[in-house]
């Protein structure tokens, strides 16, 4: 008991004025703005796919991009909530990425069905996964850096969602840059690696988000 009283006195002495953290919605908007800015720079350097104006008239391509953007928004919001010990008492909102991923899977299923006869896949394969990963490195570093300033009590979940958020930035870039129409290629080499990324994120969360 005496030790606890001593500790309380010591903590109170260290208790200088502090500014409460921003609301997680503001935080996630900040992250999305950074992601948009980063994507703008990436497109300035790489350019867009040459058939983009035509592709933007295809329903399933636009739906795929919208679903990817939905994943970026939902994972950013969820990661922001997961940075708070109590998830800012918005636990259900933190689960929204599950919905957006389900919606994304549905869109990809319809896009795959619409790709008939199937478009031949390009000659390259894993290069796409590597390109997305490379582009996602900076957003991942940024998001983990910001999250470390908070106090997550869900390391695995937070790490996984944060890395998926960063990966979705890379996925949006590659879909708008690479001239590929093969849905099977896109599923295999752009989106299925997200499962491995989610698992890697769990491990990273455990290591990086300790406090």
């Amino acid at each position: 008991m005496a030790d606890i009283d001593k500790l309380i006195d010591k903590l109170a002495q260290d208790g200088t004025a502090i500014k409460p953290a921003h609301h997680p919605i503001l935080l996630s908007i900040e992250w999305i703005m950074v992601a948009v800015f980063y994507l703008a720079i990436a497109f300035m350097l790489s350019g867009f796919r040459t058939d983009l104006s035509l592709k933007l008239h295809e329903t399933w391509f636009v739906a795929e991009l919208a679903a990817l953007a939905g994943i970026l928004v939902a994972t950013s919001l969820s990661a922001a909530l997961l940075s708070f010990p109590d998830l800012h008492q918005m636990r259900r909102v933190a689960l929204v990425p599950a919905l957006t991923f389900a919606l994304f899977a549905l869109v990809m299923f319809f896009a795959w069905r619409a790709d008939s006869p199937p478009t031949p896949p390009p000659v390259h394969s894993v290069e796409c996964t590597l390109s997305i990963t490379m582009l996602a490195v900076l957003p991942a570093v940024w998001i983990f850096f910001v999250m470390r300033r908070f106090a997550s009590t869900h390391h695995y979940w937070a790490g996984s969602i944060a890395l998926l958020s960063a990966f979705s930035v890379g996925a949006i870039w590659l879909r708008l840059y690479e001239q590929t129409d093969s849905i099977m290629h896109v599923i295999d080499w752009h989106y299925l690696p997200m499962i491995a990324i989610g698992i890697l994120g769990m491990w990273l969360g455990k290591v990086v988000l300790k406090w």
Partner: peptide, 14 residues
Amino acid sequence: ILISIHKARHTYDG
């Protein structure tokens, strides 16, 4: 726990 509360007190906004 008290130390953790101290470290995380900026995550509570009242």
